[in-house]
Amino acid sequence: MTPSDSPSSPRTWKKPPFIANPVIRYGIFIVAAVYLVWAFGSLPFNWARISEGLPRAARIFSGGFPPSLERYELLITGFKESFQIAILATLLGVFLSIPFAVMAARNIAPIPIYVIGRAVIIISRSFHPVIVAILFVAAVGFGPLAGILTLTLYSIGFVGKLLAEEIEEIDWGQVEAMRAAGAGYIATLYYAVFPQILPRQVGLSMYQLDSNLRASAVVGIVGAGGIGGTLMNAFGRYDYDFAFAILLVIIAVILLSEGISGWVRKKIW
């Protein structure tokens, strides 16, 4: 028992602070408060325009209800294109992610190749698909081609990264066994590496199909095809009842696709 616990003097207790050093503790509070004030103060809010917001919101929502499916052909065409973009991009992306993942796995790629593989993955992950989409739209024109290219790159980044990590964690004994049996580089990959990562790859492609479908709804906003373009047009023409109908269908499709993809992944894993 320590002397401070001696029962004669009145004993006090205070909760030990979350951060022991008082300078750092109060410093963090002050820095956070100053940051919040500065950030709010430096952002250019257009209050005059914002104050019109509520009546506008009322107008938009009253214009949007009830949602109208009058032009359902446009909706169907848009969704069909989104599906096609998602399917083709997932397929291309998942296949192309394999070579990039092999390149970006530290344990089986030589350093220069590794650097290239990592760079491709980092770059394709850094850019939001919408940014990639406007670049592709600028390069190859409006339409689903730009969408497919965008989502392929997006899939390579996401699947490639996970796959590369998976490869880095494989059981190395199998690789050694294949090498001991005299197998070449490709044969080793095929027999000792791929079987270890393939089950994961199937699950990942289902996941990627789901997230590509979500993304294909937005790349259309910058002209890369699919339902996003239809939505953007409806908004642009103040056609709010159709826009809300599209939005509701997008939500329904996304929930459905999430459910299906989750179910399939559960079956496979």
Binding site: P44, I60, A217, V218, I221, L231, I254
Partner: peptide, 21 residues
């Protein structure tokens, strides 16, 4: 969760006008 950020942005730009808000 089912509405993408950029679609939310589209909606809020229509309501509050272009800008950081």
């Amino acid at each position: 969760r089912s509405v993408n950020t950029i679609i939310w942005a589209l909606l809020f730009v229509a309501i509050f006008g272009p800008g950081v808000l």
